[in-house]
Each structure stands twice: as structure tokens, then as C-alpha cells.
């Protein structure tokens, strides 16, 4: 009787696709992940009807959290309209009757994302789920998982710091563009998923809970709200976000909305020149509509 499925009206799937036992497993792991900020909690992952790398880890989190009154946003590399985002959104709509979906960051209660954190600051009534391909930042220095677990437990990141510093000596700066190792609450160092450096400061003192799901590695970890998140850095080489200045030192603007304080994607135009546009499509739409309003044009 416990964990009974609520399969009314002969639906082919349980609400949220996963059976209630699979949800309980993920739910218990989520609560421990929140209680131990940055620690990778192992869980028994169920097979999903899609290839790994499709975001199954993130999706299992989303499906274990989701309720019928949810407003869900799915983004892939900042865009709500990529094939991946559309497919995941359709899957959620199909398996979670009653749930509504949106592209507007301001309106959603649950966001599943790959590679970006929205530009619009998240709020306390939102949860962000990030899809993670490689959860353990220590893999680059230690092949044995048992040894890595001990290193994490002892917060022994000396070898990771040495590796980072070697990069600096070689290239003159920290060259990591994505997955920047970040220390949570002064203890665990996490792989924050392939978000750009631009998004890393958003993990610090976030109003929203941020959850990370790695389907292949079967790990869940969390950055709770109002928790310290510090990118690893050195006193002589501080952490820096991406620099979007042109040759003249001016901040590049989005070619579509004119925004000068968002993360930009670079495109090559037909004529071969470079152009820049907001990576966060909802943010770009918002800026465009604001600009039109101030110019008195219809939004």
C-alpha cells in the first residue's frame, strides 16, 4: 500500500514516469545532498527511456520533485528552443499531466538546465536542477574512486590546486572555461557542471536551491540557498569571469537586444564577420521587449 502508484484513468505511466520506489530513492538522496552541501550522494539510478547524456540524471531529479501545480522551464545552453530542451519539455508534459511549462524564468517554479544558469536572479520559490556529465572534480588527479572519496571527506584538494597552478604557469592564467572547481561551504569542491565561469558566482549565496544530477555516475549533490560557493583561486591569480571586451576595450553588446551585461555566444555571419548574442534566450527576449517599450514601440 505504501508507495502505491497513483495511476488513475489507466494512464500508461505513473505521474512523473518513475515509479514511487524510484522516486523515494532519489528523494532520500536529495535530502542528504542538501544536508551535506557539495557532497556527491550515490543513488540507485533507474533506466530512462532515453540515452544517457540526454540529461537523465537531471530528469530523475526533476521527476522526483515535480507536482501537479509545477511550472517548469527546460533550457539547454541557454535556449528553451533547442531540440534537447524541446524533447525534455515534451517528455515532462506527457508524463506529468497538469504540469505547465514556460520559457519565462520569472514564472517557473522548477528549472532543468544544461550548461547555463539563467541571467535573471533566481528566487526562493524556485529550484534549479543542473544536468551533470562528470560529477567529480578530482578525477583529473586521482583515478581511484575510493581514494577520491577519502580526499573529499578530508577536504584534501592540494593535488587539484597544484594541477590548477600548473595551468597557470603554462598559460599565464586559469584556462578552464567550463566546470570550474568550486568549494562549497568551505569543505567539498564540486564540479558545477559545464556552466561557464560567468555563472559560477551565481552559486554563491543563491536565493534558490541548486541541485546537480549525474545519471551515468549516479550521483546527486546540492548547493543549498545562502551557502558560500568559492571558485578555487590563488592570491596572485584571482578568479575572473569571461571578458567580453572588443579590441578597443569596449564591452561587446548583444546584436539582438543591445544588452551589455549578459553572457554572449559568438556567431560567424554569412559575410564572415563575428557577431554576439545573449546565450540566455529568455533574458534576450526580456531586454528586447524593455528596449522597445522605452522607445514607445509595441512590445
Amino acid at each position: 500500500m505504501n508507495a502505491m502508484s497513483h495511476n488513475q484513468a489507466g494512464n500508461a505511466y505513473n505521474f512523473g514516469f518513475l515509479d514511487e520506489y524510484a522516486k523515494k530513492e532519489v528523494r532520500r538522496a536529495i535530502l542528504k545532498a542538501i544536508a551535506i552541501p557539495g557532497y556527491q550522494v550515490p543513488y540507485a539510478s533507474r533506466e530512462m527511456p532515453m540515452g544517457r547524456g540526454f540529461g537523465t540524471g537531471g530528469l530523475q531529479l526533476t521527476l522526483s520533485l515535480i507536482g501537479p501545480n509545477e511550472v517548469v522551464k527546460v533550457i539547454d545552453q541557454g535556449s528553451d528552443d533547442s531540440v534537447n530542451a524541446v524533447n525534455l519539455r515534451r517528455f515532462i508534459e506527457m508524463t506529468c499531466p497538469g504540469v505547465s511549462t514556460t520559457t519565462a524564468t520569472a514564472e517557473c517554479t522548477l528549472i532543468q538546465s544544461r550548461h547555463r544558469i539563467p541571467e535573471l536572479p533566481l528566487t526562493a520559490r524556485q529550484i534549479l536542477v543542473l544536468q551533470v556529465p562528470y560529477p567529480d572534480p578530482l578525477v583529473v588527479v586521482e583515478p581511484s574512486e575510493d581514494k577520491r572519496k577519502t580526499m573529499h571527506g578530508e577536504a584534501d584538494y592540494s593535488r587539484l590546486l597544484v594541477k590548477l597552478y600548473e595551468d597557470i604557469v603554462k598559460f599565464g592564467e586559469i584556462t578552464i572555461s567550463h566546470r570550474y572547481p568550486t568549494r562549497i561551504n568551505g569543505h567539498y569542491v564540486i564540479d558545477p557542471s559545464p556552466i561557464p565561469r560567468w555563472d559560477v558566482p551565481k552559486l554563491n549565496d543563491s536565493a534558490a536551491l541548486i541541485l546537480f544530477g549525474a545519471g551515468r555516475e549516479k550521483k546527486i549533490y546540492a548547493v543549498p540557498p545562502h551557502t558560500k560557493a568559492e571558485p578555487l583561486a590563488f592570491s596572485d591569480v584571482p578568479f575572473r569571469v569571461e571578458d567580453f571586451r572588443d579590441e578597443q576595450g569596449r564591452r561587446r553588446a548583444c546584436a539582438r537586444c543591445g544588452c551589455v551585461d549578459s553572457f554572449l555566444d559568438e556567431f560567424v555571419t554569412d559575410s564572415g564577420s563575428k557577431t554576439y548574442q545573449c546565450s540566455d534566450s529568455d533574458w534576450c527576449d526580456m531586454q528586447l521587449s524593455k528596449a522597445r517599450q522605452t522607445q514607445g514601440e509595441p512590445a
Binding site: M4, S5, H6, F15, E20, I30, I34, L209
Partner: peptide, 19 residues
């Protein structure tokens, strides 16, 4: 014992442990 109630209780637990 119903799944929809357990989902709501779980979300309250998420909030409780997060805050």
C-alpha cells in the same frame, strides 16, 4: 499513503532542509 500527498510532503522536506 497517497503518491500526490507524499510529493507535497517531500517538497516541504526539501524546503525544511534547505532553509
Amino acid at each position: 499513503w497517497q503518491a500526490d500527498v507524499q510529493q507535497r510532503v517531500f517538497r516541504e522536506l526539501v524546503e525544511a532542509f534547505s532553509r
